[in-house]
Amino acid sequence: MKIISVFSVNRLGKMAIFVVVIGIFSLLLSGAWNYIQDTYQVRADRSNAMQVTRPILSEQVVPVMAPDFFTEYRLERDKIRSERSDLLREIIKNAAAEDTKHQAQETILKMTLEKQREAEMENLIKAKGFTDALVFISDNSVSAVVKTTALTQEEVVQVAEVISRLAGVKPEDITVSAKP
Score class of each variant (00 low, 15 high):
67 P>A: 07
67 P>Q: 05
70 F>L: 04
72 E>R: 06
73 Y>C: 13
73 Y>K: 03
74 R>D: 08
74 R>W: 14
77 R>H: 15
77 R>Y: 11
83 E>W: 13
84 R>T: 06
85 S>E: 14
85 S>V: 08
85 S>N: 13
86 D>Y: 09
86 D>V: 11
88 L>T: 06
88 L>G: 02
89 R>C: 10
91 I>P: 00
91 I>F: 15
92 I>H: 01
93 K>E: 10
95 A>E: 02
96 A>Y: 13
96 A>C: 12
97 A>P: 06
102 H>R: 05
104 A>F: 05
110 K>H: 12
111 M>W: 14
111 M>Q: 04
111 M>S: 03
113 L>N: 00
113 L>T: 05
114 E>Q: 13
114 E>F: 14
115 K>Y: 13
117 R>K: 08
118 E>K: 13
119 A>Y: 06
119 A>K: 04
119 A>T: 06
120 E>G: 02
120 E>P: 00
121 M>H: 00
122 E>S: 10
122 E>M: 09
123 N>K: 07
123 N>H: 03
126 K>F: 02
126 K>Q: 10
127 A>V: 10
128 K>R: 12
128 K>D: 11
129 G>S: 11
129 G>W: 13
129 G>A: 15
130 F>E: 03
131 T>N: 10
132 D>T: 04
133 A>T: 00
133 A>H: 00
133 A>P: 00
134 L>Q: 01
135 V>R: 01
136 F>G: 02
137 I>Q: 02
138 S>W: 14
138 S>L: 13
139 D>I: 08
140 N>Q: 08
140 N>A: 12
141 S>M: 09
141 S>L: 09
141 S>T: 13
144 A>K: 01
146 V>R: 01
146 V>E: 01
146 V>F: 06
146 V>N: 05
147 K>R: 07
148 T>W: 03
149 T>W: 11
149 T>Y: 10
151 L>N: 01
151 L>M: 06
151 L>S: 06
154 E>L: 15
154 E>G: 02
155 E>D: 04
156 V>A: 02
157 V>D: 03
158 Q>H: 07
159 V>N: 01
159 V>D: 00
160 A>R: 03
160 A>F: 11
160 A>L: 04
161 E>N: 06
162 V>F: 02
163 I>R: 00
163 I>M: 03
164 S>G: 11
164 S>W: 02
165 R>S: 04
166 L>F: 09
166 L>I: 10
167 A>V: 04
168 G>I: 07
169 V>D: 02
170 K>V: 08
171 P>I: 15
172 E>C: 15
173 D>V: 14
173 D>Y: 09
179 K>V: 13
179 K>N: 07
